[in-house]
Amino acid sequence: MIRLRAPEIRLGDRVVLRDIDFAAASGTLVALCGPNGAGKSTLLRALAGLLPKCVAADPRHVAYLPQNARCAWALTVAEVAALGRIPHGDTAAAPIERALLACGVGHLRRTRIDRVSGGQARRAMLARAFATEPRVFLLDEPTADLDPAAAHQIMRLLHDTARAGACVIVVLHALDLALRYADRMIVIDQGRIVADGAPGAMLPRAAAAFGLAHGIDPTPRLLPPA
């Protein structure tokens, strides 16, 4: 469970978000959608307590993964996951191990993160968030730049994590992924939350925010792996 109420959120002297009253419950996968510059990442950063005047989130319960999260040094995958234990002040082996296995990078634990594929590196960064064993995940575009199969794998992992009781909030550009995996879709346009509800029902509003049409497309499509 996480909640944020703010009449406006500023970056410097620019108002980026207005009239924000946001709450998300445990056990749900929430997708934040909207065009570039709508304020999705800012909302996520506000929830993480990264903006001035925002209450800092408890780092033991809230894990935040920035957009294009990378590691400056070539740590091994296991060392990256171990960074997730910093809020707890320990290096407990069990949660790190669970995180590596859950994210499907157990076999890469001794491999340097600069020697794995993009999808594997992203999952190693996710394993860092999982190792914290938080109640709330705040993930900014965790599927960006990934091939479709890797993106589906990560969304399925997040879906299962929400089913297991966590609150997972994801900024997503790929509306099809949001439609398929999210329990709730929030559409942000020009700094305001303009739609909030079941993804299928929110599609018209989301399409309008992107300037797209919507409907049933009968052409052959790629589907997630069985």
Partner: peptide
């Protein structure tokens, strides 16, 4: 040591790790 380890992930991620 721990602070520098966390900074490897960037300043934002380090801050949300409680650093």
């Amino acid at each position: 040591g721990r602070g520098l380890d966390a900074l490897a992930l960037g300043e934002d991620a380090a801050a949300t790790l409680g650093l």
